[in-house]
Simulated assay, not measured.
Amino acid sequence: MKISTMSLLEELERPEYASMKKAFRRRRYVKNETIAFPEDSPNEVFVVAEGRLRVFRAYEEKEFTFAVLETGDIYSSHTGAHVVALTDGALLVTDVGTFHREMMQAPAVTQAMVRVLGGLLKNAFQIIDSLVFSDSTARLAAFLLSEARNEPQGPVVRLAVTIEELALHLGMSRQTASTLLADMGRSGIIQKLGRGVYRIEDTPRLEELARQGKRI
Results as ranks from 00 to 15, higher is better:
residue 118 G to C: 03
residue 112 A to K: 07
residue 75 Y to I: 06
residue 86 L to D: 12
residue 77 S to H: 05
residue 97 G to D: 10
residue 140 L to P: 08
residue 127 I to K: 09
residue 96 V to M: 11
residue 74 I to G: 01
residue 78 H to V: 12
residue 140 L to R: 10
residue 135 D to T: 05
residue 122 K to N: 09
residue 92 L to F: 07
residue 129 D to P: 02
residue 115 R to V: 14
residue 137 T to N: 04
residue 68 V to Y: 09
residue 81 A to K: 11
residue 99 F to A: 01
residue 85 A to D: 05
residue 119 G to P: 09
residue 83 V to Q: 01
residue 66 F to G: 14
residue 80 G to F: 07
residue 111 Q to I: 15
residue 134 S to N: 13
residue 106 A to H: 03
residue 84 V to W: 00
residue 64 F to Y: 14
residue 139 R to Q: 03
residue 129 D to S: 12
residue 125 F to E: 10
residue 106 A to T: 08
residue 101 R to N: 02
residue 107 P to F: 01
residue 94 T to P: 00
residue 97 G to P: 00
residue 115 R to L: 13
residue 82 H to N: 10
residue 113 M to H: 01
residue 97 G to I: 11
residue 84 V to Y: 01
residue 73 D to R: 07
residue 134 S to M: 13
residue 138 A to R: 04
residue 71 T to P: 00
residue 65 T to N: 08
residue 102 E to M: 06
residue 74 I to K: 03
residue 107 P to C: 02
residue 129 D to Q: 09
residue 72 G to V: 08
residue 67 A to H: 06
residue 101 R to D: 01
residue 95 D to H: 07
residue 70 E to M: 15
residue 98 T to M: 05
residue 83 V to K: 03
residue 87 T to V: 08
residue 64 F to R: 11
residue 124 A to N: 10
residue 93 V to W: 02
residue 95 D to Q: 04
residue 63 E to F: 05
residue 81 A to P: 00
residue 126 Q to R: 15
residue 64 F to H: 10
residue 72 G to Q: 06
residue 138 A to L: 03
residue 63 E to K: 15
residue 130 S to E: 15
residue 93 V to L: 08
residue 109 V to C: 07
residue 76 S to E: 12
residue 91 L to M: 08
residue 66 F to M: 15
residue 100 H to W: 09
residue 84 V to K: 11
residue 98 T to L: 07
residue 88 D to R: 06
residue 67 A to C: 06
residue 112 A to C: 06
residue 66 F to A: 13
residue 81 A to M: 14
residue 126 Q to F: 10
residue 131 L to K: 10
residue 109 V to T: 14
residue 73 D to C: 05
residue 133 F to D: 06
residue 78 H to L: 12
residue 117 L to D: 05
residue 81 A to Y: 15
residue 121 L to A: 12
residue 87 T to S: 12
residue 67 A to L: 09
residue 93 V to S: 01
residue 79 T to V: 15
residue 113 M to P: 00
residue 121 L to G: 07
residue 116 V to F: 01
residue 76 S to H: 08
residue 65 T to S: 15
residue 118 G to A: 03
residue 93 V to C: 02
residue 117 L to Q: 12
residue 135 D to I: 04
residue 133 F to E: 12
